[in-house]
């Protein structure tokens, strides 16, 4: 019996093979070749290239554009993480009970998540257009002319305008995670707390928030990585402009490789990107685990 099981187990290992092969072929191999090219001056076209050691890394860290890009990434990520988490939590608290209207509203808020991000970007580009865009026309229509902005043309607000679209598109998705977390909290806890005379704020602080921690950890972890990797929205809406005000790492890598034929430099950028993402993921993962244990 035991021997048979063991044999069976060995056969089971084969199930790993397709996945492993795909992983090696589609992830490990490109990553390693990217690492290799990051030490070269390959232009992406020629047959030949030179090994130039760590020059690409040095150039990247010294590059004015790269530094601006990295800073933009952090700004974009922080604003998306903070706003998206709060918005989705508030929506979840409002819509967690199962009534017909609430289920409908949940579906409605989730809708943007299933749209392609390129469509979302195009739609919002028109909404944000300063002259014929819905947003400014709407503001003027209700007499709030002073609030009209050059949404994606002003270098000070363009990045945040795109972050707002990112939140619009994904808050509904995160709301679902929060709702699942909220529905898992036993209602007895609230009942007894209410009997003890707990106020709404106290209920939230002492019951909802601590018990929602695992869901929050998932939401924050997911949002952090997702917003750090953002590419499509920025690519469609501003392509990094005006004057690099919305250029983030992923668009910088794309422009360096395919607009400027500096594959080596772009590969170095990708490797730095990979390391930053790996560190972020590791930290998040640790946080997530501690939450679960608690």
């Amino acid at each position: 019996m035991n021997i048979k099981r063991l044999k069976h187990k060995r056969a089971l290992w084969l199930f790993l093979l397709p996945g492993t092969l795909l992983y090696l072929f589609l992830f490990a191999y490109p990553t390693l070749s990217g690492l290799f090219y990051s030490f070269t001056d390959w232009d992406g076209v020629s047959d030949s290239y030179r090994m130039i050691g760590l020059d690409n890394y040095k150039d990247s860290f010294e590059s004015l554009v790269f530094r601006k890009t990295l800073l933009n990434n952090v700004k974009f990520m922080l604003s998306v993480v903070i706003v998206q988490t709060i918005v989705s939590l508030v929506l979840a608290m409002l819509l967690s009970r199962n009534t017909k209207t609430r289920v409908f509203l949940r579906a409605l808020f989730f809708l943007p998540a299933i749209l392609s991000s390129v469509s979302v970007g195009l739609i919002w580009s028109f909404v944000y257009d300063p002259t014929i865009g819905m947003l400014n026309l709407g503001l003027r229509g209700v007499g709030l002319d002073s609030l009209t902005q050059n949404w994606i043309g002003d270098r000070h607000i363009a990045l945040y305008a795109i972050a707002a679209v990112q939140v619009w598109a994904h808050a509904g998705q995160m709301m679902i995670v929060f709702i699942a977390g909220l529905q898992a909290i036993p209602s007895e806890l609230y009942e007894s707390a209410r009997i003890d005379g707990g106020s709404r704020m106290q209920l939230f602080r002492h019951i909802t928030w601590p018990l929602l921690a695992p869901a929050s950890a998932i939401v924050i972890a997911y949002t952090t990585i997702q917003s750090f990797k953002a590419f499509d929205l920025i690519f469609v809406m501003t392509d990094g402009g005006p004057n690099n005000a919305t250029e983030i790492l992923s668009t910088y890598i794309y422009h360096t490789a395919f607009g400027n034929y500096q594959f080596g430099l772009a590969s170095a950028g990708s490797m730095i990107f990979l390391v930053v993402l790996a560190v972020l993921t590791y930290l998040q993962f640790k946080a997530l685990r501690t939450d679960r244990a608690a």
């Binding site: 028109f126 944000y128 257009d129 300063p130 002259t131 014929i132 050059n150 949404w151 043309g153 005006p242």
Partner: peptide
Amino acid sequence: PDALGTKDAA
């Protein structure tokens, strides 16, 4: 106005 936010199509 706000020419910097205007795209090709607009």
